[in-house]
Structure formats: structure tokens, C-alpha cells
Design a binder for these strands. Structure first.
Lengths: 92, 92
DNA sequence: AGGATTTACGTGGGCCGTAATTATG
DNA sequence: CATAATTACGGCCCACGTAAATCCT
């Protein structure tokens, strides 16, 4: 599992489409598709239903989406908070 | 930033010592040291004070440690929750 | 001088992108 | 047959490990 995989998952979940998500991430489809497959493999369950028009979230995917967003938000918070603490006190 | 870097940071913070943390992570010192340096670079502030006996957390490091643990806990929760959802319902 | 971190440097594995393949309506 | 996802495959980059250097007490 990696933060990149999580970002990829969120993009595909929101676009419902690997191609569009890939453009949004400035990435080509194959690696993006592999990110999703790797996640599904690691989690031991499919996250999307593959249709001929794209990908739709399964229940497990909906659940993971909530967690995924929380993880990235937490990372963001960490960065911003630490930057503030780091540059706040005297900083010799 | 990567989950690996975060794990590395936590290990060094808890051991107060790159060498011991490296053994605990089954990794050699140089990459581990680079993980910390990369984090500090990305966050724009030092996280540890380097002493001749190891490394001690600075205030920014203490702050980051709280967030780091929350991030990994969130990842863990995501994995376990999704595994449950995935294997729960009918699973045709 | 001893114990620690950090830099140099060469190598191997992993990830990307192009191209080909498969699947589905 | 068109559109979407996936697999094959070649190449580059990044991260590791060994070894050397640096720093501090």
C-alpha cells in the first residue's frame, strides 16, 4: 500500500473511468490500472465492478473511499501542522 | 512523503537511534537516515536533534509523531474494515 | 579514538510508457 | 466494431547496500 495507490484509487472512484482518472493524474492507463489491481490484491477483495463503460464502486470500494480520503486528509494536516510548529518557535 | 518514510520516522523516534531502528526495520542505516532527511526536507524543518548518542525529537518531531501514528492507524483501520466488508456480504 | 550519522557510488528491482491483447455492448 | 481495461515487454530511475568520510564528546 502506498499513498500513490490511494490517490489513484480516489481518482478512479471519482471519475468512474480509468482513462479520465489517468489524464487527471498525468499518468497513462496501465500503471493506474495496476495501482487498482495491487490495492485489490492487497485488500483481498475487488473494489470496483468493471463495466464496458468504466468502473463502478462496489460496497467494499465505497467503504475504502471513506478511509482513503481520511488518510490523505490526515497526511495533509500533518504537513501543515508540522510546518507551523517548525517555523513558529525561534528557529535559530 | 510515503508510508515507508512515516514508518521509518516512527521507528527512529521510538528507538532514539538510527542503528537500532534500522535493525528493527530490517534495513541498513543509510537508507533509513535518508528517509528522515527526506522528510525533514519535505517538511521544511528538522525533526530531530542529532547527538553523539543518537537522535532526540525536537518539538516539530513530537508533533509529527502524533500525526504519523494517526496516519498508520488510519491505514490499518482501512485495511481491516475493507477486508470485513469484502468478505462479509455474499461474495459470489 | 569510539560511536554515531551522513555522503559516495555502483547495482538490481520496480514502475512507467508504448504497444498488443482481451473483453463487452 | 468501438471503447474500455488489462497484460507484455523494454528501459530508466530510484532506493538499497557496502564502503568511505565526517562529526562530536
Amino acid at each position: 500500500m502506498s499513498l500513490t495507490h490511494i490517490q489513484s484509487f480516489i481518482a478512479v472512484a471519482e471519475e468512474g473511468h480509468v482513462g479520465r482518472a489517468a489524464r487527471r493524474l498525468h499518468l497513462s492507463q496501465p500503471p493506474l490500472s495496476r495501482h487498482i489491481l495491487a490495492l485489490e490484491d492487497e485488500l483481498g477483495t475487488p473494489l470496483f465492478e468493471r463495466t464496458s463503460r468504466g468502473m463502478r464502486l462496489l460496497p467494499a470500494g465505497e467503504t475504502f473511499l471513506l478511509h482513503a480520503r481520511r488518510i490523505l486528509a490526515e497526511v495533509d494536516a500533518a504537513v501543515h501542522t508540522v510546518r507551523k510548529v517548525g517555523t513558529g518557535p525561534v528557529e535559530q
